[in-house]
Design a protein around this nucleic acid. Structure first.
Lengths: 88, 88
DNA sequence: TCAAATTACGGTCGACGTAAGGATC
DNA sequence: GATCCTTACGTCGACCGTAATTTGA
């Protein structure tokens, strides 16, 4: 559904770590770092506080995560519902 | 927000034509045709009836469009709201 | 015959991995 | 010192355009 950058962001937010998210996504740390950074600059919104170690969500990052997660679940419901049906 | 394929699909659905949507998106007809076809096979859901000329939404395509449009507007509201705010 | 859509085929740009460097525990 | 994140850089695949084909008005 979502842009790849946003899908990645959600996993990082859930795992609280790029490396854990990377393992889950079978992706490199650097790829995640790159894509999440790109998302932040696309939005012009800082989503994570970076101390150089574990990233933590900013206030805006938390709001963004909650909303985007909610929309993602709704989307999955829509698709699941459509797939259950006979041909249109 | 959405995957590029879905963004394209929405415009085609709104315009009722690939060529009109292509002009709007400053994109070629073939690029749109490719991406929308890919979306349909990704989802395993036929979204348009193709008679070879003007495409028309299937029943499922209509439902998908309405839902996805609704989610898209919600997303835009979320981002707009976050951008209005001071630094987190 | 004209307009619209699909298919085939190359080129280009973005996404990814590896490697190196910096920071925190 | 070990782990985690970032940056630099080269590679590969996805996306797009052009051209040719097909189909409907």
């Amino acid at each position: 559904m979502f842009d790849k950058k946003i899908e990645y962001f959600m996993i990082v937010a859930e795992e609280g770590s790029f490396s854990a998210a990377a393992r889950k996504l079978l992706l490199s740390q650097s790829a995640l770092s790159q894509q999440v950074s790109l998302l932040e600059s696309d939005l012009s919104i800082r989503l994570f506080d970076r101390n150089g170690y574990r990233p933590t969500l900013t206030k805006k990052g938390e709001v963004f995560y909650k909303e985007v997660k909610r929309l993602s679940l709704q989307y999955q419901n829509v698709v699941a519902h459509l797939k259950e049906q006979k041909k249109s």
